[in-house]
Simulated scan of single mutants.
Amino acid sequence: MAMHYELPIDHQRVSAGQVLQSIKTLRRLFQNSRLHFFLLAHCYITGQSVDGREIHKDQVQEYLQRFPAGSRLRLAGVLV
């Protein structure tokens, strides 16, 4: 939320790279994979880069394909 609304934390702007790094330190759970997916999708939609790298639609869709076949996100075909 801080990144999305450009709110500072401890008087510092929060970058997409910082959010991604925080997500990667979480345990590998499905809900954390969803956080990662939604961050990538948000960055793609808003044109925001992650650590200086532009996020492309193919990257977001590739990450979506990693979800279990029965996942509602995968079945919804987000960003298709």
Rank of each mutant, 00 (worst) to 15 (best):
A69I: 15
H42D: 06
K24M: 14
V78C: 03
S33T: 04
A41Y: 00
R34G: 00
Q59I: 08
E62L: 05
R66G: 01
Q65M: 15
C43G: 05
S15I: 01
Q21T: 05
R53P: 00
Q21H: 08
L7E: 13
S15V: 04
Q65W: 08
L75I: 15
L39W: 02
A2I: 05
Y5G: 04
I23Q: 01
F67Y: 01
V14P: 12
E6Y: 10
V50E: 03
L20F: 05
L26I: 10
S15D: 05
Q65N: 14
I45P: 00
Q12S: 00
A76W: 07
P68C: 05
L73S: 09
G52F: 15
N32S: 09
N32I: 11
F67M: 09
S71V: 00
P8D: 04
V14Y: 14
G77N: 10
F67W: 03
Y63F: 14
E54H: 15
S49N: 13
R28G: 12
D10I: 01
S49T: 11
M1L: 03
G17W: 02
F37E: 05
H56P: 00
L7N: 15
L26N: 14
K24I: 15
S15H: 07
R72I: 00
P68K: 07
S22N: 04
K24G: 12
A76L: 11
F37C: 05
H11E: 09
Y44D: 06
H4I: 11
D51Q: 11
Q48P: 00
T25G: 05
C43A: 12
L20R: 06
G17Q: 04
F30N: 14
L64I: 04
A41G: 02
Q18C: 03
A2P: 09
Y44K: 09
R74V: 08
I45H: 08
S22H: 03
L40P: 04
A76C: 13
G52C: 15
A69C: 11
L20P: 02
I23L: 10
E62R: 07
L26D: 11
S49Q: 09
Y44C: 04
T25A: 08
H4T: 07
P8F: 02
F67H: 00
E54I: 14
R74T: 04
G52T: 12
T46K: 10
L7A: 15
V19N: 00
T25V: 06
S22W: 02
D58V: 13
V60G: 02
R72P: 00
Y44H: 11
H56I: 02
C43V: 01
T46M: 13
L35S: 11
Q12G: 00
V80P: 03
G17R: 02
E6R: 10
V60C: 05
Q18H: 05
Q18S: 10
R28T: 12
Q59V: 01
H4C: 11
H56S: 07
L75A: 15
A16P: 08
F67C: 03
V14E: 13
I55G: 01
Y63T: 13
N32F: 06
N32Q: 06
I23R: 03
F30M: 14
I23F: 08
T25I: 01
D10Q: 07
R53L: 03
Q21S: 13
Y44V: 07
H4A: 09
Q65C: 10
Q21V: 02
Q18G: 05
T46F: 05
L26T: 06
G70Y: 03
H42Q: 01
I9N: 10
R13H: 06
L26S: 11
H42S: 08
